[in-house]
């Protein structure tokens, strides 16, 4: 993917850029808002990673508002040292698609960037999701594996749906917490792990090939081959 990183802190920029490049992405970097806006408006990117506070008169929020005003719909991930909920809401309202508070683990950033970048640009109203022999029917809200119906509770359904929509991508615990439960706080305990392991019991138990994988130091991933 072609990624534009707008970040004024040289060290963070270097670290993020290196990490994203190692993950196989093509990264352009701008150190201030004005250059960032110029690049974002004149070239095609798959995703923009913006610091919320930028020098040069154009901060992250202004940059996104300007782009959205021009009809540019490139997904935007905000990086910010401002953790207050208001700030998150402000960022998302301005047209940001995701919000990551500094300091962050690189795995978290990478997972979010990939989730945003591979999001279908036109939300195709898929009615079925399928990974190997695991099938999810979004209309009847049923899940089958190898033709056998699985007993899945509503919340587990949403958890599995989120994993399946991002099949082959790492989904972090925080992402699940935010996207499946809409919680923006630290649950203190490894609640997400408990939920995933419960889901795993239903989806993978009794089948040869496990589909839900734990990615060390990052999160979970659903994929066909072990």
């Amino acid at each position: 993917m072609r990624i534009l990183l707008v970040e004024d802190d040289a060290e963070v920029a270097r670290f993020v850029r290196k990490g994203l490049q190692e993950a196989g992405h093509n990264v352009e970097h701008a150190a201030n808002g004005r250059d960032g806006l110029f690049l974002a408006a004149s070239e095609q990117f798959d995703i923009l990673v913006l610091d919320r506070m930028l020098p040069g008169g154009v901060d992250g929020v202004r940059l996104v508002e300007t782009l959205r005003g021009q009809g540019n719909r490139t997904p935007v991930l905000f990086l910010s040292a401002l953790s207050a909920v208001d700030e998150r809401v402000k960022g998302l309202k301005a047209g940001g698609d995701d919000y990551l508070v500094k300091p962050f683990a690189f795995a978290e950033l990478l997972a979010r960037v990939e989730a945003l970048g591979r999001r279908p640009t036109v939300e195709a109203p898929a009615t079925k999701l399928k990974i190997a022999d695991l099938e999810m029917d979004l209309l009847s809200r049923t899940v089958t594996r190898g033709g056998k119906r699985l007993e899945i509770q509503p919340r587990e359904f949403r958890l599995l749906e989120h994993l399946m929509r991002h099949a082959g991508q790492v989904v972090t615990r925080t992402m699940l917490l935010e996207k499946v439960w809409d919680y923006h706080f630290d649950p203190q305990t490894n609640v997400i792990d408990v939920h995933v392991s419960r889901l795993r019991q239903k989806v993978d138990k009794g089948f040869d090939k496990p589909l839900i994988h734990t990615v060390r130091n990052a999160g979970y991933m659903i994929r066909a081959e072990g």
Partner: peptide, 13 residues
Amino acid sequence: ADVAEFYGAVAES
């Protein structure tokens, strides 16, 4: 109810 369900999994485990 959501919170209870959220932590319910922990209780169960």
